[in-house]
Structure formats: structure tokens, C-alpha cells
Design a protein around this nucleic acid. Structure first.
Length: 279
DNA sequence: AAGGTAACCTGACTGC
DNA sequence: TGCAGTCAGGTTACCT
């Protein structure tokens, strides 16, 4: 479910509801996620205020004085805030209760497929960029930052022989672009998903960088894509799913030229594109 | 270095 | 109604 826009919408919602509140209690399920829950670190955060909530790549970052809780939503994860205390239900893995005691809020991490994770990143272990501590998919440039533009993307793709779509999704050059938005941005830029990254002209890379930003911003404004069951931390549904131009539209007419859209598989993931409009 | 493959999981959907 | 097969927004480890 969650690519950058869904994670951003979640982080913004958590920030609005939980910033400044102290962690008062927590509970966890016994089922294991991609990483074991950092139980000791969470225990040490008791009574510590949540300084702020942000995002890096596809990670939600909850900042405390001693470090960050980094939550990855995997394929099916959600973070939702509930008023008052709340027990963990089926597929809930972590509950964090924030004060004040008179009016507590409980944050619940729910993830049926358990591809998600919760890690603690100690402040002391971070040099410059927290992305370095988060793994291979968080190394690249944030696509909504000023540092992300055509010339930079062109520079990074020099001599890269990988196909553009898997390269975009790998997170080494740009982070947060997942399967949906990679397909959408490439369609809007008129670039075939199989084209070699290092063989795309600078002016087309410029357009691609622009379309990546456009697609992500539109999705954030719409509250995220709502495939299956995405909803943000306040329970609202994303509406971007209705705006997909190619994703999950195999065989349907291209909005530009009306020829049937194609589906191929790259790096084990479905790619959707128009064979006429994308070269 | 880059590509392929399998693995980690549950749930929704399709077709027989 | 049920059962088997397929697919899903992500990441990582291990092969060639």
C-alpha cells in the first residue's frame, strides 16, 4: 500500500495529533515483524515527549530526545490514532499510549502481512543523514526537496545500465517512488519503463523529475492512493486511486491515444505503460 | 555491478 | 460452497 505519499499523509496526521505528548504506556503482540520490536528502547522512552513526527523515504520517524522510532509500513501497514486506551486487535503489533493521563491517545501499528517494521535509531548512531541508518532504499534524494531536479537525476544516471523503472524504485537515486508512482511518472514523462536509465536524454530526465514531483504532490493532496484499505492516521480514505492513468489498467484505453495499455513484469513487479506514448 | 529468484506474510479475488 | 491458484502498495539475501 504505502509509497511516499501514503507515508507522508500518515506522518502529517500523527504530527498534528501527537506532537509534544509524552509516551505513557505501550503494549506489543508476540508476532514478529521484519525486525524484532525494539522493546528495551521503547521502555526507555517512557515519559519522554514526542518531539516531532516526520518522514524519510518510506519511513515514518517519531523523534524523541534520545533518537527515533522508525516505522516502515511494508505492504499492508497502517498507523492509526484512537482516543483513550485501546487493546490490540487482530494484526495489531504495537500500541503506544500518549498522555496526558486525563486525555490519552493511543497510536496503533496494524500490519496484516507483517512486512513492516519498527526500529529504534539512537541519535548517537546517526552522523549526518538518518537515511544512512535506514537501509538501501533510504539512501537517495528526497524527491520533494530542492536537491531533486533534472540535472541531478541525469548526473546520477550516468553510465547506469539498469532499466529506468527498477532503478527509480531501488531508492539509490531517489527515495519513496514505489510501484504505482514509478509507472505513473514514467507514463506522464513519455518514457518506456524498460529504457536504460543511462541512455535517457537530459531534457527527458528533466521532465521525469518534474512528473515524479507532480504525481507525488497530487497524491499527497488527495490523501494518498486508496488501493484496498489505505487510510491515514485519522481514518480518512485516500482518493488518489481514482486518478491513476496507467497503474492496474492493463487492456484499458490509454487516456492520450486510446490504444490498450500494457503490463510487463520487471524485477518481479508489474509495470503498466502505453506502448505508443512511451518510448 | 546488475539482474534474477526466492523469501518474508495475510487476504482478496478468480476460476473450476 | 469450497478449494487451489494468483496477485498485491516493499525489502533483503543470495545466487549467477
Amino acid at each position: 500500500m504505502p509509497e511516499l505519499p501514503e507515508v507522508e499523509v500518515t506522518a502529517q496526521s500523527l504530527a498534528a495529533q501527537l506532537t509534544g505528548r509524552p509516551l505513557m504506556d505501550w503494549c506489543a503482540s508476540a508476532k514478529r515483524l521484519r525486525h524484532p520490536l525494539p522493546a528495551k528502547a521503547i521502555a526507555r522512552l517512557m515519559a519522554c515527549p514526542l518531539i516531532r513526527v516526520g518522514r524519510r523515504a518510506k519511513y515514518v520517524l517519531m523523534e524523541f530526545a534520545s533518537g527515533w522510532l522508525a516505522v516502515h509500513l511494508g505492504m499492508s501497514g497502517t498507523l492509526q490514532v484512537f482516543r483513550g486506551p485501546r487493546r490490540l486487535g487482530l494484526h495489531d503489533h504495537l500500541g503506544l499510549s500518549f498522555g496526558p493521563t486525563a486525555d490519552p491517545l493511543t497510536l496503533v501499528f496494524h500490519d496484516p502481512r507483517r512486512f513492516g517494521s519498527v526500529q529504534f535509531i539512537a541519535r548517537a548512531s546517526v552522523d549526518a543523514d538518518i537515511g544512512d541508518a535506514l537501509g538501501a532504499t533510504a539512501q537517495g534524494i528526497e524527491p520533494l526537496s530542492d536537491a531533486f531536479n533534472g540535472p541531478t537525476l541525469t548526473q546520477l544516471s550516468k553510465n547506469v545500465r539498469s532499466e529506468i523503472k527498477p532503478w527509480l524504485m531501488a531508492g539509490k537515486a531517489v527515495v519513496g517512488v514505489g510501484n504505482i508512482y514509478a509507472s505513473e511518472a514514467l507514463f506522464r514523462a513519455g518514457i518506456h519503463p524498460r529504457r536504460r536509465a543511462g541512455r535517457i536524454a537530459a531534457h527527458r530526465m528533466e521532465l521525469l523529475a518534474q512528473e515524479i514531483r507532480t504525481v507525488l504532490k497530487h497524491a499527497i493532496d488527495a490523501g494518498g492512493s486508496s488501493l484496498r484499505d489505505f487510510h491515514s492516521a485519522d481514518g480518512a480514505e485516500g482518493r488518489y486511486g481514482k486518478e491513476h492513468l496507467v497503474y492496474d489498467r492493463e487492456g484499458l484505453p490509454c487516456v492520450r491515444c486510446a490504444s490498450p495499455l500494457c503490463r510487463i513484469v520487471q524485477a518481479q513487479r508489474s509495470s503498466f505503460y502505453c506502448r505508443v506514448c512511451q518510448k
